[in-house]
């Protein structure tokens, strides 16, 4: 018998493969590097944000500010490149410092005031969206020669599929996220926190430091996601990515992570993102379906996963008691 802690991850991967197989039967073209490349490119910003969200949820928290941070990032980049004359790389670095510090500040508040993460990050969500508005009300196009050249970087895969820079950045984010969550002491502390704060503290975990680092990491990932989103759309718009935080949470849960924290895999989230992207691709291919079907499918999947996890929980506790 395999280790039961792997079941949700295996279920996620199985669902992705089955979904792909169904799509393939109807539209054989879906199994091509072109579609695969687009899947990565189109969902890159979501995937990156979801890496941060996975860590947050593993610790038993939630971060509702990430959608706003992405929008803020786009506007920030657009405004800075238009007005300041800084090199894009410098702007990126500055942005990441800001979003990381913002995340750290939220983490500190959550720990210090013993407030629910839900409330603190909800406040953060409104705050950041407001700041983005203050910087600009309209969509600002970005055109900087270096920036546009970044947008055009890609590797040609066999079969003419394009593996874009931002797609690669997403995959790297998952690799790094995986190592951080599963192979570092910080990651162990994240899981400990998700298992129970009091117990974690008695075991010698430094809960305050860990909390700050978790939300700082989520802020960093949201900033990176913002850069990728700016590269993807070529503009900054304060009304962009409304509700992306919820989509990210959904991909994490479909990826097999327990919403209450303490159990899950970062790579599960990758499959959650890909499954969601696949459903969207299917709807585009079909052409007759309204795009709202994506949401319905996601809703159904979410429900299925929550039920699955409850079932697994019962199964494992029943076995261990016997």
């Amino acid at each position: 018998m395999r280790n039961p802690r792997l079941y949700p991850l295996l279920a996620t991967i199985a669902i992705f493969i089955i979904a792909y197989a169904i799509c393939y039967l109807q539209f054989p073209y879906i199994l091509s590097t072109r579609v695969a490349g687009n899947l990565l490119t189109d969902n890159a910003y979501l995937g990156i944000v979801a890496v941060g969200m996975t860590i947050v949820i593993l610790s038993g928290g939630i971060d509702l500010s990430v959608g706003s941070v992405i929008a803020f990032s786009g506007v920030f980049i657009a405004v800075m490149l238009r007005d300041s004359g800084l090199h894009p790389l410098a702007v990126f670095a500055l942005l990441l410092v800001i979003t990381t510090a913002f995340g750290a500040a939220m983490g500190w508040l959550i720990y210090r005031l013993a407030m629910p993460a839900f409330i603190v990050t909800l406040a953060g969500m409104f705050l950041v969206r407001g700041v983005a508005y203050m910087m600009s009300i309209d969509s600002i196009p970005i055109d900087h020669p270096f920036f546009t050249s970044l947008q055009r970087v890609y590797w040609l895969m066999p079969g003419k599929g394009r593996l874009t820079l931002i797609g690669v950045v997403m995959l790297l984010a998952f690799v790094v996220g995986h190592i951080i969550a599963h192979r570092t002491r910080f990651g162990a502390n994240v899981f400990a926190l998700g298992g129970g704060e009091q117990t974690a503290r008695l075991m010698g975990s430094r809960v305050g430091r860990t909390t700050v680092m978790i939300y700082a990491f989520s802020g960093l990932m949201a900033g990176l996601g913002g850069i990728v989103f700016a590269l993807y759309t070529g503009s900054g718009y304060p009304l962009a990515t409304v509700g992306t935080e919820l989509t990210a949470i959904a991909t994490v849960v479909i990826g097999g992570t327990l919403l209450t924290g303490g159990a899950g895999y970062v790579f599960g989230t990758l499959f959650g993102v890909l499954t969601m992207g696949l459903i969207q691709t299917y709807i585009v291919f079909d052409g007759t379906l309204s795009s709202w079907w994506t949401r319905i499918a996601i809703g159904v999947l979410l429900l299925a996963f929550i039920v699955l996890q409850k079932g697994l929980l019962r199964l494992t506790t029943a076995r261990s008691a016997a």
Binding site: T184, R185, A188, F191, A192, G195, Q198, G262
Partner: peptide, 21 residues
């Protein structure tokens, strides 16, 4: 009142905070 963390593996619980790196 406390045992350890039920959601970590036995090995993780034993070495928590002192994981060989």
């Amino acid at each position: 009142e406390v045992n350890l963390l039920p959601n970590l593996t036995v090995a993780q619980n034993l070495t928590f905070g002192h994981e060989p790196r």
